[in-house]
Simulated scan of single mutants.
Amino acid sequence: MGVFTRSMVTFCVLICLIGIVSASSVIPSATTYVSNLIPGPSSELRPSFYLLHGCPLAVQTIRTAITTAVLKDPRLGASLLRLHFQDCFVQGCDASVLLKDTPTFKGEQNARPNANSLRGYEIIESVKAQLELLCPNVVSCADILALAARDSVVALGGPNWLVRLGRRDSTTADFNAANSDLPSPFLDLDGLIAAFKKKGFTAEEMVALSGAHTIGKAKCGLIRNRIYNESNIDPNYAKSLQAFLPCPKSGGDNNLASLDATTPNFFDNAYYRNLLNKKGLLHSDQQLYNGGSTDYKVSAYANNPLLFSIDFANAMIKMGNLSPLTGDQGQIRKYCSRVNY
């Protein structure tokens, strides 16, 4: 895995700023291109995997489809990024989250953190269908998820990174692990640190990954206690959520609020600036800046968008390497929603 350090920030200013994403109605400025420049440890995953394994147009096909979809529906970008996260945090990056329940199989989609919450299954299945026509039985659903997450971030103005490829798809899912391993939006800081440590992430990497909340939305039911009962929230911000979301004291559980009300359709560091002003939407968001051990990192990202881009990109590379199936493990599913028979 390529790793950036703070000492490389100046270096990156010179050579990482090499990719410009075309402006559109949902992209207010150019994006920073961040790539893992330092070779990582030996791995069966490599960016050139499909160039060497019979599908040279796979990466471009996925990028085109995802970019088109996200520019049409910016919220989809957050949904696809979250799909990759929810997948990797449960038995590794193996597309287990895409498996639907059957009469004899219980998947992860209806686990408590995912039920009536995850989106984007259809676009992944659509991309898979295109790839099956282009190069049958070659591109895994797990790799599609990893690339879709990256391409969604880039489409919304965020950093780019090299995605190592060659994952295979699981034939199993883990409903219980989805309930136990996925971090809850109600966790305090110690709980967040513990949840990410379980997957091999430092507290600093947890803060970087939390920056994904610079895009996306959350339901009223997840924020009601925070906006009515918590004290570490800007009172005017709380009142605006109560009145204009609207998120009443009862009812309206499915009404949506932007995780970052400042620039909700642009991947930037505004999420951290909001935390400095006590405008974190979720309880778990504001816990990152609440007088605890991660305050300094939130401040650093709020004041240095390039540092956030670099650290986020590297944390995503690390996440994409969580327990992948490779070689003869698993399978290449024809349909992402079910195993091959």
Rank of each mutant, 00 (worst) to 15 (best):
Y341S: 12
K278G: 08
L322R: 02
G40T: 11
S25A: 14
G191M: 10
A212M: 15
A23Y: 01
H84L: 10
V59L: 00
V139Y: 05
G40I: 04
N321W: 01
N232W: 13
S35H: 08
T64D: 15
R150N: 11
G221W: 00
A146C: 09
D234P: 08
L282S: 01
G292H: 05
C141Q: 05
V138P: 05
W161M: 05
Y296V: 12
V21K: 12
P264K: 05
T10R: 13
K239E: 14
G292M: 00
K318G: 01
P136A: 08
F11R: 12
C93D: 09
V3L: 13
H84Y: 13
V3W: 08
S210M: 15
K219N: 05
N304D: 15
P235E: 04
D234H: 11
S35R: 10
Q287L: 03
W161F: 12
P74H: 11
A203P: 08
I310S: 03
V59D: 07
R333F: 03
I233A: 02
N225E: 11
A148L: 02
P56V: 01
R82E: 11
D311W: 04
A65T: 13
Y228K: 06
Q130I: 00
P47S: 08
K217L: 14
S284D: 12
D169Y: 03
H213E: 05
R226Q: 09
A148F: 01
I332N: 03
C141P: 06
N321F: 05
H84R: 15
A300D: 11
S7Y: 13
W161H: 08
I123Q: 06
Y301H: 02
K106S: 14
R224S: 06
L76D: 02
L118H: 09
F49Y: 15
A257P: 10
S42H: 12
G330K: 06
D101F: 05
G211H: 06
G107P: 03
Y228H: 06
K239T: 13
R6D: 13
C220G: 09
I215W: 00
A257Q: 08
K199M: 14
E108Y: 09
G320Y: 02
G54P: 09
M206K: 08
F4E: 00
M8P: 01
T326F: 03
T61H: 11
K198T: 13
L134V: 01
L118Y: 07
N321I: 03
S42A: 15
P159E: 04
G2I: 07
P113N: 07
A195K: 14
